[in-house]
Design a protein around this nucleic acid. Sequence first.
RNA 1: GCCCUUGUAGUUCAAUGGAUAGAACAGAGCUCUUCUAAGGCUUCGAUGUAGGUUCGAUUCCUACCAAGGGCACCA
Length: 590
Amino acid sequence: MNKEKLTNLIRKSAQSLGLEVGAFSLEHPDEISHGDYSTNIALILAKELKMNPKELAEKIVAEMSKTVFDTIEKIEVAGAGFINFYLSSKFFDESLNSLLEAGDTFGQNSTLKGKKALVEYTDPNPFKEFHIGHLMSNTIGESISRLVQASGAETKRACYQGDVGLHVAKAVWALIKNKKEVVSAGNLGQAYAEGSKAYEDPESKIEIDAINKKIYDRSDEDINRIYDHGKTISLEHFAEIYKKLGTEFNFYFFESETGKFGKEIVLDYLDKGVFEKSEGAIIFPAEKHDPKLHTRVFINKEGLPTYEAKELGLAQIKYDLFPYDLSIVITGNEVNDYFKVLLKALELIFPELAKATKHLSHGMLRLPSGKMSSRTGSVITGESLIEDISVMVRKKIESSDRGIEDKERLVNMVAVAALKYSILKQSPGRDIIFDFEKSISFEGDSGPYLQYSYARAKSILNKAQENNIAELSHSGSTNNFLLKIFSARPAGLRKASQLRSPATKEVTELERFLYRFPEVVERSALEYAPHYLITYLTDLSRSFNAFYGETKIVDPSDPSSPHKVALTRAFSIVLKNGLNLLGIQAPEKM
RNA sequence: GCCCUUGUAGUUCAAUGGAUAGAACAGAGCUCUUCUAAGGCUUCGAUGUAGGUUCGAUUCCUACCAAGGGCACCA
């Protein structure tokens, strides 16, 4: 009994009462004790017919009850006129079966099957720090990429980096002045801060502007050498961070490439009336197309392309390399208004690319003490934040000994999980007030909570195997999980659907959550909102932990034990698949 | 001044126009001779203000108040 089937049954029943049925909703109630599905059809129809919604609901229920369903336990009218459906143990047994059979693939859908998707995120700038804002973009982008991939799209990841521009010139200026050989990415951050400060001084400004031009045209050997070296150091540093975070990009794009291309596009469309000349610059008067938009400069007085022109070039370069059906660009929300202007320009030039482009923005990471600024050097780097969290995780791991072999690997897994969870738990687009003490938690709603729940489930499964209740075997491409019934009879292998004993006829809350996973994944992907998935996984884990607390799962003397073990196995599958979609690793032990 | 976003327990976050507004942290109290206590169980506590639309509003509309971001050559 899936949602579609049930919707049709409800519609049919109402129609056979002679009612005209329009749109109505069928959802999982917020409160899990209110049943598995709930519809508001009676409330909607009663309004049109000016009837009492409760009475109408009763009539619809009576009509539905004429048909016998073995997957529905009971139907009842509740509240103002909601009809609640409680699924039967048969339904749950079957769904458990298919869940265990699907294994790693459970949760995937095909809404984007056959499509090509390109996701751009993180976008740090060489010569500047990789700060906590980049961690945000990376975390969200990685999860979106995985969700889109799980929806069937051929997915590529891209990172776009600003390797030219005033910020680079400022850093290079400071490096030359101090005759400092670049040895670490940290030096570059300092150099950038120093250059920014110097830029306020008119004399230094002239020098920095000159360097900026030379970087663009590569006319000065000494500057080229310092520039190339610094860029290499930066990129190597970023690569290390990506490794820690678990991101592998397919494409790297640079502003030094997109600028040239973007400029050509703008000049090309200058004649065609999209752009105009104004005060020596080339502009796009977006307000002529939409009063809420404003004019932006695409090529400045100096003849250099701005961010906007570069983006035009980027859209085209991306498409040439990977002809996408969907191009997702993830940025901070401070560029929202520019992006709207940009998309309007793109729409006039490459309508099909504009249609395929989806801009997602995340909020800012704000510190309780005020705004972070790399210009003044008051930044928290991504690296230092991960290290600070790691110190706390390390302490925790040292205090408990579970025979973990590679402790540093676990430290990184848990630290990254704590960080990613705190970023993904809220709806995207909103600012995060980042308070180190409060934001990074190992208790309650947290990444480590989910990981701990997973490790616990794995530990129970190992014990079940030792007690000969379950047998985990990998054959071919599918995971087979076989359970044995313990009794006087010869131990036999059973499918999960044959395990429920009369004693456990009652359906547990855990089961009511498990089968919903694919729906949650689909919604998260469709709305580009990983926080739905996080909320679900947290509820699911809480439900499992409560289950663990109130019952003994592995117990050879208990006939319902194999069924409980099967549920534990199902839980571990869903949680691992879910964590994977968030870009969080699931440790076997912790 | 104009445009965009956001106001929910003490704090950080949830809630496709639906039922008694959910969690977590912090506070109070239980719980390891039992499969991982990074856990479980009790308990206290909230929709910025004023209107409107609706059978029903945290959600939609209007005004106000408050916070953040943006508004021509940085990104």
